[in-house]
Design a protein around this nucleic acid. Structure first.
Lengths: 156, 156
DNA sequence: ACCAAAATCACCCAAAAGTATGAGCCCCGG
DNA sequence: CCGGGGCTCATACTTTTGGGTGATTTTGGT
C-alpha cells in the first residue's frame, strides 16, 4: 500500500493537480459566464495552465539515461614464486618417495655420505637409490639429474 | 533569417499549433454554446489537448538527462621474468670469464671431459678452472657450486 | 597367505671428480 | 723490465661417484 503510493507519487500528484484545476474550471465557469469577453481569457488561461502541467509532468516521468563507462586499470603484480611438484612427470617416471628425497638433497649440494646422514641410512642405500634414480631419469650423473628435475618441475 | 527559423523550429511549431488550437476554440466556442452540457466536454478536451502539447514540447525542448557512471575494472598483469646476471656478486667473488663458462656448462649437466670438448681445452684445464672456481665460491663440489650460483643469480 | 615393489644393506671395481704441485705464455700496468 | 692475473697444460694422487651383483627386510595390495 505504502510502496504503491511512493511508486506512483508523481501520477497521484498529477491527479490532484488535475482535480484542483477542474474545480477551478467549475467555479470560474459559473462566474465568467456572467461577464462579457471574459470567456476568451478563461479559455486562454486554461490552455496555458495545462501546457505547463504537461511540461511539469514530463520532467517528472522521464528517467535520466544511464551511461556506464568501464575504465580498465592495469595492475602489475610480481610473479608468485611458489613451487608445485609436477606430479604427472613424477608418476610417469616412476620415481619413489625415497628416490625423490635423495634427489632433493642432491640438488642442495650434499654429498652421498651427507645425504645418508640426513636420511638415517647407510651410504650404500643412498648409492642404490641414486643408481635407480639415474636409470629412471635416463641420466648419467647427478648434475644431469638435478638439471633435468628442475626443468621438469620435479624439484623446486 | 533562415538560421533563425532553424534554431527556433520547435518554438515556431508550438506557436503554429497554438494558433490552430485557438482557432478551433473559437469555432467550437460558437457551436458548443448552443448545446447543453457540451461545455464541460469542451473544456475537458482543451485541458487534455494542452497537457499533451506541453508534454510534447518538453520532449522536444529539453535535452535528455544523462547520468554517467564510471566503473574501474582491475586487470592483473604478470611481470616478465627474464634472467639477468648478478654482476655485483660476480665481481665480488672474482670469478673469471672462463670459470663462469665452466660453471654454466657444469650446471647443464656436462661432465668435465664434455666441458673440455665444448670449450676446446684439455680435461686438465677444466679441472683447474673448477678447482679455482670452488675456492672462490667456497664450496666443496659441483652440486654445491651450481646450487649456490643459481641462488646468487650468477647463472640462469 | 602370497606376491611384488620398495627400502635397506653389503661388497667389488671402474670412472669421474677433486687436490696438490709445477710450468709456460700472454697481457697490462707500474 | 718486472710482477700479477688469467689461461692453458701436465702429472701424481686421493676421494667421491656410479655401476654391478646379490641378499634381506618391510610394506601394501589382492
Amino acid at each position: 500500500m505504502y510502496a504503491f503510493l511512493i511508486r506512483h507519487k508523481t501520477l497521484l500528484l498529477y491527479g490532484l493537480c488535475l482535480a484542483v484545476l477542474l474545480f477551478l474550471l467549475k467555479w470560474l465557469e459559473v462566474r465568467l459566464l456572467l461577464v462579457d469577453h471574459a470567456f476568451e481569457l478563461y479559455i486562454g488561461g486554461i490552455a496555458v495552465l495545462f501546457t505547463a502541467l504537461g511540461i511539469w509532468l514530463t520532467r517528472k516521468l522521464t528517467r535520466p539515461r544511464v551511461e556506464t563507462i568501464v575504465v580498465e586499470k592495469e595492475i602489475y603484480v610480481q610473479k608468485e614464486q611458489s613451487f608445485q611438484v609436477n606430479e604427472q612427470e613424477l608418476d610417469s617416471l616412476g620415481i619413489s618417495k625415497r628416490e625423490l628425497a635423495v634427489l632433493g638433497l642432491m640438488a642442495e649440494g650434499l654429498s652421498n655420505q651427507e645425504i645418508a646422514d640426513r636420511l638415517f641410512v647407510s651410504l650404500n642405500t643412498v648409492k642404490t637409490h641414486s643408481s635407480n634414480l639415474f636409470e629412471k631419469m635416463e641420466v648419467k650423473r647427478r648434475t644431469q639429474a638435478v638439471e633435468k628435475a628442475k626443468r621438469m618441475n620435479i624439484i623446486p
